[in-house]
Design a protein around this nucleic acid. Structure first.
Length: 199
DNA sequence: TGCCAGGCCCTCTTTAGGGCCTT
């Protein structure tokens, strides 16, 4: 089974379509249900980081001043995710930035991707909501460090992912493939019990 | 220059609207 890289970006805003850029990447690599490696780097895209983002992340313009440029970091990160599946909390957000930043260095990730937010809405329907911070408490996984820092968020997302996989596998009594997880994420909530019973 | 998102999912739906998530 391929490794799973759980990743998280901190960015200058909500969309690369409006010239927002990644300012930090954090990721953990999961093999056989355990975190075996990690990747973290600030990166300096050469754009000014506004006060809201500085307050949210604790990442200041001064901290980015001497950070390596995005092109250098993303080239290294591309090697880190080779031959892996990727997972993120609200994948559609992080995948946009991954594609945009890799595209700027003429690279492309063509592997499979999964979303812990979509899985949580299906597997943990009784959670008060499906924000990362809420799921950390709901799943009783370790709170590692500071929210809105990339590596800490990636670690916590990784723990939540593993907790959800464990819950699925405990309920059906067998292991599930990454492809099956993707299928669960695409299945309407109402049909999840029926799907799990059929595995 | 400055503008500022968008996919998912529910429902009093599908000829739509609005909340949830991510920074």
């Amino acid at each position: 089974m391929k490794p799973i890289v759980v990743l998280d970006f901190e960015t200058s805003g909500m969309s690369p379509d409006f010239n927002d850029r990644a300012i930090e990447i954090g990721a953990v690599k999961i093999v056989d249900g355990a975190i075996v490696d990690e990747f973290q780097s600030l990166m300096n895209p050469g754009v000014y980081i506004n006060g809201f983002i500085q307050d949210l992340t604790g990442i200041s313009n001064d901290m980015l001043k001497d950070a390596p440029h995005n092109s250098q970091v993303m080239t290294q990160f591309y090697e880190f995710i080779q031959d892996s599946h990727i997972v993120a909390h609200n994948l559609s957000f992080d995948k946009k930035f991954l594609d945009a930043e890799l595209g700027l260095v003429d690279l492309e990730f063509t592997g499979s991707a999964g979303c812990s937010l979509l899985l949580a809405r299906r597997i943990l329907p009784d959670s008060p909501n499906h924000k990362l911070g809420t799921l950390v408490n709901y799943c009783r996984v370790p709170k590692s460090g500071q929210f809105h820092r990339a590596l800490d968020d990636a670690k916590m997302t990784g723990f939540i992912w593993l907790a959800m996989i464990d819950k699925i596998e405990s309920s059906i009594g067998k292991t599930v493939s990454f492809e099956m997880i993707q299928k669960i994420c695409k299945t309407p909530k109402k049909k999840i019990p029926e799907l799990l019973a059929s595995i």
